[in-house]
C-alpha cells in the first residue's frame, strides 16, 4: 500500500472515530445511577460501547475509503484486482472479534454473579403484580402500593404475578425481572441514592400496561425503620 493511502485511511478513521466517540461521550446515555448493581451494569455498558465504537469506526472507515478511492464511472468496463482472499487477514478478523466477545462475556459473567448476590442480610420484599397494579409486602406483614427501601441495604424482591406476565423495572436501579404466574422469581437491588424513582411495568400485560407504574422511594435506614414500625402500629 502506498504511503498516501495509509495517511488517507488514518485521517478518515480519525474523523469517523471522533464523531462516533463524541456521540458516545456527549450524549447522556445512561439514566441517573442509584443502585450498586448499576455500577457493574454501567461498567459492562461502557466496555461494550468502546469496543463497538472501535468496530464501527473500522467498518465505516473501510467503506468510506473504498467509496472515495475505488469509485469509477458507469462506462468503465474494466474489472478490479482478482483478489480471492488472504488467509492472514481472515485469521485476524476471526480471532480479534473472538477475543473481544470473550472479554465482554467474562465481564458480564462476573457482574451478573455479583448482581444476583443479596449478601447475608437482605430485606425481603414480596412483590405482587396484577393487572395493573403493584403491591409490596414487607416481612412484618405490612403491604404498600409503593416500594420503600432503606439506603445501602440489599433488598431482595420476590416476585409473583396474579394473572399474566409483568415485569419490574426501575431504570435508575438497572435491574429488571419478570413476574410469572405460577413461579416465584427473584431480583436484588441495593439502593445507593436517596430519592423517588419510577417503577415501570415492561412486559406487555394488557390494556393498562402503559400506566402500570408505581414508585420506589429510597429512605435513610432510620426513617425506613420508623416507617415500617409505624406501619405496624397502624395495623
Amino acid at each position: 500500500m502506498r504511503k498516501g493511502a495509509i495517511v488517507t485511511m488514518v485521517v478518515i478513521g480519525a474523523i469517523v472515530g471522533a464523531v462516533v466517540a463524541c456521540i458516545a461521550v456527549f450524549v447522556d446515555w445512561l439514566p441517573e445511577q442509584a443502585s450498586e448493581e448499576r455500577e457493574g451494569i454501567d461498567f459492562v455498558f461502557w466496555l461494550t460501547t468502546w469496543i463497538c465504537v472501535g468496530i464501527f469506526t473500522v467498518v465505516a472507515s473501510l467503506i468510506i475509503y473504498s467509496v472515495m478511492k475505488f469509485r469509477t464511472s458507469p462506462d468503465d468496463d474494466a474489472d478490479g484486482l482478482p483478489i480471492h482472499g488472504h488467509t492472514g487477514l481472515e485469521v485476524v478478523w476471526t480471532a480479534v472479534p473472538f477475543i473481544l466477545v470473550t472479554v465482554i462475556s467474562v465481564a458480564s459473567g462476573v457482574v451478573l454473579a455479583r448482581n444476583q448476590d443479596a449478601g447475608n442480610n437482605p430485606l425481603r420484599v414480596r412483590v405482587t403484580a396484577q393487572q395493573f397494579a403493584w403491591s409490596f409486602r414487607y416481612p412484618n406483614g405490612r403491604e404498600s402500593p409503593v416500594l420503600r427501601m432503606p439506603l445501602g441495604r440489599s433488598t431482595e424482591l420476590r416476585l409473583h404475578a396474579r394473572d399474566v406476565l409483568h415485569s419490574f423495572w426501575v431504570p435508575q436501579f438497572g435491574q429488571k425481572q419478570d413476574a410469572v404466574p405460577g413461579i416465584e422469581t427473584r431480583l436484588v437491588v441495593t439502593p445507593k441514592k436517596l430519592g423517588r424513582f419510577p417503577v415501570i411495568c415492561t412486559e406487555l400485560c394488557g390494556l393498562g400496561h402503559a400506566v402500570m407504574r408505581s414508585r420506589a422511594i429510597v429512605m435513610r435506614p432510620a426513617a425506613f425503620r420508623r416507617w415500617l414500625a409505624r406501619a405496624r402500629a397502624n395495623r
Binding site: 468496530i55 473504498s66 478490479g80 481472515e90 478478523w93 476471526t94
Partner: peptide
C-alpha cells in the same frame, strides 16, 4: 464479523459502480 469484513475487503481495489 467474517462476513462483514469480507464484504469490505471485496470493495478493496475494486472498481465500484454505485
Amino acid at each position: 464479523g467474517i462476513k462483514v469484513f469480507s464484504w469490505c475487503a471485496t470493495l478493496w481495489e475494486g472498481r465500484l459502480h454505485f
